[in-house]
Design a binder for these strands. Structure first.
Lengths: 362, 362
DNA sequence: CATTTTTGCACAATCGATGGTGCAATAACC
DNA sequence: GGTTATTGCACCATCGATTGTGCAAAAATG
């Protein structure tokens, strides 16, 4: 039954109610009161008053005054795949652990949109930005640099800012070896049976292609070629690439390296248009992890980037603020087929019902 | 080669540079200048100056003054499944269309965390909140109500605030009919072959259970019972429910209704521990859509909530601000097995490479 | 030409918090 | 008991925008 009239309480309200000045109230509420030699009595009085009045700090006002905001941004291309949504989830948890408020936005792989989006974040005075999966890292970097905004690249190489990236080269090599070994059990392979789909002219793709070739060349003992179908990060283009291949060869390659889960969705579309028999004998490797993909009707190996380690390292880099850009490489994890890993979902505590519940009386 | 010293330009800087007063500059920059009878000349002069100086509005200052922020929140339980991540993606697009900045946060199905998270959003003076998939809608509602924050429930029923929900009842009925029909092709079914896994004591689950029973009862002509395995929204609990069932019956039910993709992940974990033969003869229905799930080794029917329509309606409700809470019901879509729908990913314009690219010279 | 109207803008208060500075009252000290 | 230190807090400028109000100068009107 505390006093509760519609509007939100401010430090001035508490100031009047407590008889203390606004600056005293402010100091008490933001924790700087010891430094300001406010007596414990006064502090406690104000704190209990604040609780009674349900005071909460107006973060826009604080942010304006201190030219900070407590916001950290994460820029991703899109949310709706397991890699980036899982990154968003982990990012949120890690940001909150550090007392920051996460703000996740997508740039949709459009350089203009990426820049505009970041500019909006800057207009809200965000304190730092994590940049993941953008088309134009340097453009974004410039926007950040102009605003003096600390930022790190995640899973992107950066000459201009520090970066944390997956070991695409080695991860792809390990992944390729795994699918080659698996496929070889089904009969002798030839180089033409092993094809990479997806990717782009970006650092990650180039590294993955290099790893793919390294493993393949080692396996066959020759230098392979004409085995890369570039599609960009587009399900549609990937689907078309599969259709082209299929029209040309009358079958899929026995051994598929798929550059990312987004490209994998292109394969799904292809699957939707073709008989299951087409996929009876293939083995796939995908650089990304999706639990449902792991249980498809053919063996799917995946390389799961260590998102949590990448973000953790990203926060460290922001705190350390090295003078020169630093690149940190983090190993992805090879996930064998039919594996459902635990994830952020498992941390949530969902009440476990004691018993079955009846259906409603319709 | 415009003047560009490190710090950000403010209206005062532009005021000095332009010879106009700060209020004039402000009016020009926020578009209210016609109303304030600023001459077009002056406006243009200031606008070009602003461009040259790369002026951007400090949104914290604006927000403080106008006690708005341009932020809209979306509260989800978790991001990392296709339903909520797709919702986040759609939400972001729709918010931006309306000139708002989306802020997506997760409450992790913890009533306390939900409230705290919303309080943080309120502290940033968000303008409106979309509430999706929370455990304690009424608790969140109270927090919003106290702050005078407009809000709508998405896919949640609400007596206290307006809601947009999927037609869980009918969607489940249609979904159940579909899997029954499919499974019946594999031989005569008995009621015990048809079981629902997942869910909770919440509105959506109750409705889905009702729809499930309606379809099942109509199919068999009797009232069925003992066919619901409640697990909460937890992969772990769902896995255990499958293990229990399997230990008891020595097989899975031929016809599975899975309450959500989160519960489906529980089935995946079960799958990881059992031979493929266990799944040879089953048909699944899942209330949620995930493209990868659609291509599992057994037929999977899905009911895809119409996220975009729900959010659209949510924005309408916020604008209309009806005096009494309104509930809008939106039909989900039945998705047959082996279907890879297009999604937000397809809107992004990813440059299509002209040709194959070479691997890097390692 | 005198008066009213309109145009074009400047002034100043304000949003809610922060933090440097100053100043009484009390305590400590010789 | 007089002087210096310390304690405890209030005052006030400030962050960058918004907006109600006021007032000259120019234009319109009779």
């Amino acid at each position: 039954m505390t006093v509760q009239n519609s509007k939100k309480a401010t430090i001035y309200d508490l100031s009047v109610l407590s008889g203390a000045s606004a600056s005293t109230v402010s100091a008490v509420l933001n924790g700087s009161w010891r430094k300001r030699r406010i007596s414990t009595e006064t502090a406690e009085r104000i704190l209990s008053l604040a609780k009674a009045q349900r005071y909460t700090t107006n973060l826009q006002a604080r942010g304006l005054r201190s030219s900070k905001s407590g916001l950290v941004g994460l820029l991703v291309p899109v949310y709706d795949n397991r890699f980036f949504s899982s990154m968003a989830q982990t990012f949120e948890a890690q940001a909150r652990l550090r007392g920051l408020s996460p703000m996740v936005v997508s740039g949709r792989r459009d350089p203009d949109e990426e820049r505009r989006t970041v500019e909006t974040l800057i207009a809200y005075s965000i304190d730092a930005l994590f940049i993941a999966g953008v088309t134009d890292p340097d453009g974004v970097h410039q926007v950040c640099a102009r605003a003096g905004l600390p930022h790190v690249n995640i899973d992107l190489p950066g000459k201009l800012a520090s970066s944390v990236i997956s070991d695409n080269r080695n991860g792809a090599e390990v992944l390729t070896s795994a699918i080659l070994r698996h496929a070889a059990q089904g009969g002798a392979l030839v180089p033409d049976d092993v094809v990479l789909f997806g990717g782009h002219d970006d650092h990650a793709s180039r590294e993955r292609i290099a790893g793919f070739h390294a493993a393949k060349d080692a396996f066959f003992g020759i230098e392979s070629q004409n085995d890369i179908e570039i599609t960009g990060y587009s399900p549609r283009m990937t689907e078309l690439a599969f259709e082209r291949f299929f029209a040309r060869e009358g079958r899929l390659p026995r051994c598929l390296f798929i550059n990312s889960s987004i490209n994998f969705e292109g394969l799904l579309r292809f699957m939707g248009r073709h008989d299951e028999a087409v996929f009876a004998n293939i083995v796939a490797g995908c650089f990304d992890y999706d639990p449902f993909a792991s249980f498809l009707p053919f063996p799917v190996y995946m390389a799961k980037p260590n998102i949590s380690a990448m973000l953790e390292k990203g926060f460290e880099l922001l705190e350390a603020a090295p003078v020169h850009p630093v690149v940190t490489i983090i190993e992805p994890q090879l996930i064998p087929p039919r594996t459902a890993l635990e994830g952020p979902l498992d941390d949530i505590r969902d009440p476990v019902p004691a018993s079955r519940i009846p259906a409603p009386t319709s």
